[in-house]
Amino acid sequence: MSGLRERKKALTRQALADAALRLFLDRGYDAVSVKEIAEAADVSVPTLFAHFPDGKESLVFDLDADREAELVAAVRDRAPGRTVLQGLRDAFLSRPRPADTEQMHAFMRLIRDTPVLADYFRRMWQRHEGAFARAIAEDVGRDPDDIALIALAHFVLGAVEVSRRSADPAGDLERIFDLLENGWGAALTR
């Protein structure tokens, strides 16, 4: 069980993220200041930056904290007998999808229509590439600097990002994984 201090920190962080999202969806990202977000969450600006040192963009993507661990686990914890790509396909397609609500659609529009958020999202997602590639290399017994495995990690992350923007994310991700498996299968054999 976490202590009182940790629970208070988590509640403050959540209040900031919720206030930011509410204001961004209501008025647009560029029309909202950090000061307004802090005031809406009833904290000071320094407190906001203590929780979100990367600035305003990071308030939108508060749920990314465990993403890298999930990516590595998708490689390491796949079902027996499944190749790395099959395990990744299984993991990405079985992940719970965000509720198909008007708020989720508004959130995705906010990211898509705000260049700084779209760019931040891409950078944030791709920053996991190194750990992801190392997990794949470790699993298949290859050098972590193997360019084929680094590229594979890059392309898998890109596939997930591209499929999120489509009208049929799951179907398009299936099609992309078919392409990756047929083109990259030999690179993953021991």
Rank of each mutant, 00 (worst) to 15 (best):
K35I: 05
R89I: 01
V140E: 05
V160Q: 06
V84Y: 07
I150G: 02
D54R: 12
I111P: 00
A133C: 06
V162P: 00
P53V: 02
E39K: 15
P98K: 10
A170F: 02
R190F: 08
L188I: 03
D113A: 05
S58A: 10
T83P: 06
Q86V: 06
F132R: 00
H51T: 04
R13G: 06
S33C: 04
D30Q: 13
Q126W: 07
L11R: 15
L25P: 03
M1A: 13
F49R: 13
E102R: 15
A153P: 03
S33I: 03
A118G: 10
A167L: 09
E70T: 10
A99E: 11
V84P: 05
A99G: 09
L152W: 03
M1L: 12
L179A: 10
L152Q: 01
R164W: 09
R142E: 08
N182I: 11
L149V: 01
R22W: 00
E6T: 15
P144R: 08
L63T: 14
A151C: 14
E70Q: 14
D62H: 12
D90M: 01
D100E: 13
F155G: 09
A106K: 11
M124S: 12
M108W: 11
A148D: 14
P98T: 06
L93T: 09
W125E: 11
R13T: 15
R95N: 05
L63C: 08
R123K: 08
R122T: 08
F49C: 02
R123S: 07
A153C: 07
R134G: 02
D145C: 04
H154E: 12
T189I: 10
A38E: 11
R5V: 13
G183T: 11
L188Q: 03
P46I: 14
D18W: 00
R7D: 15
H105M: 10
W184G: 07
G55V: 09
F92V: 00
P144W: 03
L16M: 01
I176D: 02
A19R: 00
A186E: 14
P98H: 09
R175H: 07
G3Q: 03
R127V: 06
V45L: 12
K56L: 01
D62A: 14
P115D: 04
V45Q: 07
R175G: 08
A106M: 09
